[in-house]
């Protein structure tokens, strides 16, 4: 197939061809080209942040706290917080790419409008942007493992699964983040995202088990995606697979699907209605 018309016509009878042209990778290609000339500062801070937390809390506070009991095991505090910090940085990275960056492209540069004037559909744009956002989660996870393994903080081989787990939860947060952003019109609304996120991450059990909370608060936190993300990474980190792990996976599957659905719908309503 050589020309634009033949390429588009070939898909004319597929289900959902108005929404998806099968070319999310063109959007990824665009991000890759843009990355070449962009600054690396936010990426770098994302790498450094969890490591700094690990040093400050693990080696600082860890001296005071000593050990934590997790199920029937007793583990060193620094080891305990490592997966939580990894999960948090993966989620934060995904959110950064799928909120502020998306907001700019949506409202300032009108980039999506330009993309959707081509045969691309809203699902191409949504998928392309969300998948791009989770690359950050992937790179953070790899870097974090590379730093923590030599420090003896990685308890076993199953911890390698933290890489796909981090990507998976990043996917959930990126879909959800982009969906929410697509409904936001002002910078004030965008600012709210940060206000909500900080406590969400602080209180979701990355630094201590949430069993210290009163029951009602523990229950509330257990509804939050950040808690499921942290728990999922912690499960694979320590190799504690149980029905809880499945629940976390299910939670994120729902999040990914809902996020994609609402993002696609919103892009269509904004630029194609």
């Amino acid at each position: 197939m050589s020309n634009a018309v033949a390429i588009a016509d070939a898909r004319a009878n597929r289900v959902g061809h108005q929404l998806y042209a099968g070319r999310a990778r063109a959007i990824l290609e665009r991000s890759l080209i843009a990355l070449r000339s962009s600054t690396w500062v936010p990426v770098a801070t994302g790498f450094v942040e969890p490591v700094l937390y690990l040093l400050a809390f693990g080696y600082g506070m860890g001296e005071l706290i000593g050990n934590v009991t997790l199920g029937d095991k007793t583990i060193d505090y620094t080891v305990f917080i490592a997966p939580g910090l990894l999960a948090t940085s993966a989620m934060n990275g995904a959110i950064y790419d799928s909120t502020w960056n998306v907001f700019f492209k949506l409202n300032e540069s009108k980039l999506y409008q330009g993309m959707l004037a081509t045969p691309l559909g809203p699902l191409d744009v949504a998928l392309g942007e969300i998948i791009w956002a989770l690359f950050r989660g992937l790179s953070y996870a790899i870097a974090f493992l590379a730093i923590t393994a030599p420090l003896g903080l990685v308890p076993g081989v199953s911890a390698v699964l933290a890489i796909p787990a981090a990507v998976f939860i990043a996917f959930g947060f990126a879909s959800f983040g982009m969906a929410i952003t697509s409904y936001f019109k002002t910078y004030q609304q965008m600012g709210m995202i940060n206000i909500v996120l900080l406590p969400l991450f602080l209180f979701s059990g990355s630094l201590y088990p949430i069993s210290v909370y009163p029951d009602w608060l523990e229950f509330l936190i257990q509804l939050m995606p950040s808690w499921h993300g942290i728990e999922l990474v912690r499960d694979v980190w320590f190799g504690n697979f149980d029905s809880g792990t499945l629940l976390h996976i299910f939670y994120f599957l729902v999040m990914i699907i809902c996020g994609l659905y609402f993002t696609t719908r919103r892009l269509r309503d904004l630029f194609m209605r």
Binding site: A4, I7, A26, S37, S109, M115, P119
Partner: peptide, 18 residues
Amino acid sequence: DTELTVTENLFIYGRYFG
């Protein structure tokens, strides 16, 4: 696409068409 150069703009737009 303000993040891209002139040729990059032309290139990626063609890619959107496949």
